[in-house]
Amino acid sequence: MIHDGFGTYPKYTKATHALCHAHHLRELKGFIEQGHTWASRMTTFLLAAKQAVEAHHGALSEKEAKRWEQVYDRILMKAQHRLETMKPLPKKALAFIRRLQKRKEEALRFLREVHVPFDNNQAERDLRMVKVKENISGTFREETFAQSFCITRSIVSTLTKHEKNVWDSLCLLLTGDTLDRVLSTT
């Protein structure tokens, strides 16, 4: 489960958690605008780590991941030290740093696990269509209509992610092909 670190998510104990760095980058941008130099370093770190993971086809070796973790720890340690000496105490920035320290494993899960993306932007984009549909139409008249809409959007998103022609694939699905067979065809 990739999320923004909202306080209730850890209560979902049967899920493996990862933090969404799109949310972190937005927060870091705000800290940069307030003059926090550590936020620039963390932004650079996150974007470089993302590039490194992509260059290694989705996951780093354990040795390489540990090296990135050490840099992460050093940036946070220096940031925390600097923030704790400031008057007045920048509570929001300090809370952000402490959250990244406390949830380090979740924050850096994308370094080691191929199936864990850097952010959950695709999921948010997929869900946004439900809201757009609701805003245009007012609401779904029945729950089954909402369910059908979500299933259709999920299929379209999956086809797009697998770089399949959506129209041709939907035609195949409507003639009785299964999604697994459609995805396995070239």
Rank of each mutant, 00 (worst) to 15 (best):
A95M: 10
H3S: 12
L19W: 11
A65K: 01
R153S: 03
K63I: 08
R99E: 09
W38E: 07
K91V: 07
E54N: 08
I151L: 15
L172C: 13
I136D: 12
T8R: 04
L60W: 06
K133N: 06
G176W: 03
L111D: 04
L94T: 08
F149D: 10
L174F: 04
S137T: 06
G5F: 12
H21E: 02
T144Q: 07
V114I: 05
R99Q: 12
H162E: 14
H81V: 13
M86E: 13
H17E: 06
D180G: 01
K50A: 01
G176H: 05
P10K: 12
V130I: 10
A59D: 05
C171D: 07
Q70L: 11
P90C: 06
A55V: 02
G5K: 05
E124P: 09
A55Y: 00
Y12P: 10
T158W: 07
V156A: 09
H23L: 06
R74T: 13
M129F: 06
L172W: 13
G138L: 12
R103T: 13
S148Y: 09
R181F: 07
A59P: 04
Y12F: 14
E142F: 10
Q147F: 07
R112H: 13
G7Q: 11
T139K: 15
K164E: 14
E124W: 13
W167R: 07
S184A: 15
F96V: 09
T44S: 00
Q122G: 02
G35M: 05
E142V: 14
N120L: 06
K87R: 09
K92P: 02
K104I: 08
L170F: 06
L183D: 04
R41W: 03
H81S: 10
V53P: 02
A55K: 03
D168C: 05
Q101L: 14
H162R: 15
E113T: 07
W68H: 12
Q34V: 10
S154W: 04
L94P: 11
K78A: 05
T152D: 12
T185S: 09
W38G: 07
F110T: 07
E143A: 13
D4A: 06
M129C: 02
R74P: 05
L183F: 09
I75V: 12
R103W: 14
K66P: 00
R141M: 10
A93I: 03
T37P: 01
L94N: 12
C171A: 11
D168L: 13
T160A: 05
H24Y: 08
V130W: 01
S169W: 06
H17Q: 10
E163D: 10
R153W: 05
L25K: 03
H56M: 11
Q122R: 07
G138W: 14
H57Y: 08
